[in-house]
Amino acid sequence: TEIRININGVTIHVRDASEELKKLIEHLLRLGADEKEIREVLHRWEK
């Protein structure tokens, strides 16, 4: 699944996002995570 996240005008594009990762990101956004925090989570997730 491919997702695009727009945070304050900055688009983060994620290829091959699992449903689990998608739910995690949606949850973090609801909690008010910023772009830097989302990128950090994505970076750690890929490892």
Rank of each mutant, 00 (worst) to 15 (best):
I7H: 05
I7N: 06
W45M: 08
V41E: 13
E26D: 15
I5D: 02
V14R: 01
W45G: 04
L29N: 04
V41M: 12
E46Y: 04
H13Y: 02
K47F: 03
V41Y: 04
E37W: 10
D16A: 09
L28R: 06
K23E: 10
L42K: 01
E26V: 05
K23C: 08
H43I: 11
H43Y: 03
E2W: 00
A17F: 06
R30N: 11
A17V: 12
G9Y: 00
W45L: 09
E2H: 11
A17N: 05
R44Y: 15
I3R: 03
K22C: 03
E40H: 06
V14A: 04
H27D: 14
W45T: 05
E26I: 08
D34C: 03
V14H: 05
R44T: 09
I7A: 09
N8A: 10
A33T: 11
G9S: 08
I38M: 05
H13V: 12
T11P: 05
W45Y: 12
E37N: 08
V10T: 15
H43P: 03
N6R: 09
E46S: 09
I5S: 02
L29E: 06
E19I: 07
I3N: 03
N6M: 09
K23T: 13
E37Q: 10
R30C: 06
L29R: 04
R15V: 15
I38Y: 01
K36W: 11
I5F: 02
H13K: 08
K36C: 01
R39Y: 08
K47I: 13
H27S: 12
I12T: 01
E37A: 15
L31Y: 10
K23V: 14
D34N: 12
R39T: 08
R44K: 13
E40W: 01
I38N: 00
D34I: 04
L29W: 02
I38C: 01
E19G: 07
N6V: 12
L31Q: 14
L21G: 01
L28Q: 05
V14P: 02
G9M: 04
E20V: 08
H13L: 09
I25G: 00
N6C: 06
E35D: 14
E2Q: 08
L21N: 00
G32Q: 03
E26A: 09
E2Y: 00
I25K: 00
L31G: 12
R44N: 14
E20M: 04
E40T: 05
R4Q: 15
L42Q: 00
V10C: 05
S18N: 10
R15F: 12
S18I: 04
V14L: 09
H27P: 02
R44Q: 15
T11I: 13
I38T: 01
H43E: 15
I5C: 04
L42N: 00
K23R: 09
R44H: 13
I7W: 00
R30H: 12
E35C: 06
K36I: 11
